[in-house]
Amino acid sequence: MISAQAWADAQRLWDFQQMGHELRPCSVAIGLGSHDLGVADTTADLYHRGMMPLIVFTGATSRTTRDRMPRGEAEHYRERAMELGVPADAILVEPRARNTGENIRFSRALLEERGAAVSSALLISKPYEERRACATARKLWPEVEWVSASTPMTLADYADSIGDACLVIDMLAGAQQRLMVYPQQGFMIEQPVPEDVAAAYERLRDAGFTSRLVADIAVRK
């Protein structure tokens, strides 16, 4: 059972990760690979709304996707977007990235190789990783104006869609930990973390929601 306190703490992390950016047309969209095909669905929807002329889906496989996405996250995203009516010539596939930093670096290299002019980009991620993904992108490609987007849904609905609420809370804790420690390692820009968010993370960590934490890293407020 997940306690009321754990749910409240997870909700606080969920809310903090939401960037609240106003969507607008951009040069390109970059859909970050993961277990969540909702990223592909949202990217396709934004394409049909005229928010970008070009899409990059980026991602290899991970321990959570190798069975359900054996051809690679980016390739499965491409197939899903095409099922939803996005033309093949509007999609580029970056199949090697295994973390968010590689998602950005490899997508940038692919776009530069294709001669695409990029001044702004829609960064489409899972709902609980908007802020972390944006902080990484701004660090690695600061010349671009980044607009964060994800599937609009509540934490409860997202947990139901995944089918494993404990795993979702584990992933929320992992995203928050990285947001707090990765700037010190040069992986992303610094993000001010409110005290109540840091406290929510620490309670979840102490309650055992640790399967997605980076080991051997001390988190300081």
Rank of each mutant, 00 (worst) to 15 (best):
T151P: 00
P87Y: 06
T42K: 12
A60L: 00
S161F: 04
R212K: 15
A116V: 15
V214E: 13
T210L: 01
V214S: 10
D160L: 13
L46Y: 13
M52F: 15
L122C: 06
L122E: 03
C26H: 00
P87R: 14
R220I: 10
N99T: 03
D206V: 10
G20N: 08
A156C: 02
I124W: 08
P70C: 07
T43Y: 01
V168E: 07
A121N: 04
C26I: 00
L204F: 08
P152M: 04
S27G: 13
D196T: 03
T100R: 01
G50V: 04
P194F: 13
R80E: 11
E113V: 01
F16L: 02
V147W: 04
L92D: 04
D9R: 04
D206N: 08
E145N: 13
K139I: 01
D160A: 15
V219P: 02
Y47Q: 06
L54G: 01
V39F: 06
H76V: 10
A6Y: 05
F209I: 02
E102T: 09
V28E: 00
D196F: 06
M171Q: 14
R203Q: 12
R68W: 04
T58V: 04
P25A: 11
R80T: 12
G59V: 11
L46F: 12
K139N: 09
A81S: 07
L167Q: 13
L13K: 00
G38F: 04
G20R: 09
Q18S: 12
P70Y: 03
K126T: 13
S34G: 09
E75P: 00
S125N: 14
G85P: 05
Q18R: 14
E79T: 08
R12W: 03
A200E: 02
G115V: 04
D157V: 09
R114I: 05
Y47A: 08
R212L: 05
L46D: 10
H48K: 14
L123M: 11
E113G: 01
R132I: 08
E112N: 12
T64L: 14
T43W: 02
E102H: 10
S62I: 07
T136W: 04
D170E: 06
S120K: 05
F57W: 09
E102Q: 15
E79A: 14
G31P: 03
D67R: 10
A207T: 08
G72P: 07
A137G: 14
V144A: 11
G163T: 13
R12V: 12
M171K: 12
V118F: 12
A149M: 03
S107V: 09
I162T: 07
A10W: 10
T43L: 05
A40K: 01
D206Y: 00
H21Y: 06
S3Q: 05
A159Q: 06
R12I: 11
D170C: 02
D67A: 14
Q11F: 07
A199S: 14
W141Y: 14
L172P: 02
A198R: 06
S120R: 05
E79W: 03
M180F: 01
